[in-house]
Amino acid sequence: MTGCVLIVSDDAQVHQPLRSILEPHGFEIHGAGSLAQADACLAGLPVALVLLDARWPDALAVTRQWREGSSVGIMLIGDDTDRLAALECGADEYLVQPVQPRELLARARNLLRRVNPPVPMDTHLKRFAGWTLDTGRRRLKAGDGRETPLSHGEFQLLNVFMRNVGLTLSRDQLMDQLRNREWLPNDRSIDVLVGRLRRKLQDNPADPELIITIHGAGYLFTAAASLAA
Results as ranks from 00 to 15, higher is better:
120 P>F: 13
113 R>Q: 07
207 D>F: 06
135 T>E: 09
153 G>P: 04
136 G>K: 08
161 F>V: 01
209 E>L: 01
221 F>S: 04
56 W>E: 12
161 F>D: 05
159 N>S: 07
26 G>N: 13
185 P>N: 10
187 D>Y: 00
12 A>F: 10
8 V>N: 08
201 L>H: 04
46 P>T: 02
100 Q>F: 04
33 G>V: 02
198 R>K: 01
68 E>I: 06
148 T>E: 12
227 L>E: 14
80 D>P: 01
30 H>E: 11
146 R>Q: 14
127 R>A: 10
189 S>L: 14
63 T>G: 00
166 G>D: 01
70 S>M: 11
18 L>Y: 14
131 W>T: 06
137 R>V: 09
189 S>R: 15
41 C>G: 10
82 D>Y: 12
52 L>P: 12
31 G>I: 06
98 P>W: 04
175 M>Y: 02
181 R>Q: 14
196 R>W: 15
185 P>I: 15
127 R>I: 13
36 A>F: 14
224 A>P: 02
66 W>Q: 00
90 G>V: 11
69 G>C: 13
192 V>G: 08
142 A>G: 09
92 D>T: 10
89 C>Q: 04
192 V>D: 05
50 V>A: 14
85 A>N: 10
61 A>E: 15
25 H>T: 12
70 S>F: 07
96 V>F: 05
222 T>G: 01
147 E>C: 03
199 R>D: 02
145 G>F: 15
207 D>Q: 08
160 V>L: 01
38 A>I: 05
79 D>I: 02
226 S>Y: 03
124 H>T: 14
103 E>V: 08
65 Q>L: 13
33 G>M: 03
92 D>M: 11
218 G>K: 03
5 V>L: 06
91 A>S: 08
202 Q>E: 14
164 N>E: 08
219 Y>G: 00
103 E>D: 11
74 I>N: 07
17 P>G: 09
206 A>K: 10
122 D>Q: 11
123 T>M: 03
33 G>F: 03
95 L>S: 10
205 P>N: 03
199 R>N: 03
86 A>C: 02
170 S>N: 01
60 L>R: 04
163 R>F: 05
209 E>C: 01
98 P>E: 01
108 A>G: 09
31 G>E: 12
141 K>E: 15
149 P>Q: 01
59 A>E: 05
108 A>T: 15
181 R>P: 06
203 D>T: 07
211 I>D: 06
64 R>F: 09
168 T>V: 04
171 R>G: 09
23 E>H: 10
87 L>P: 04
39 D>V: 05
217 A>L: 11
193 L>E: 05
14 V>K: 08
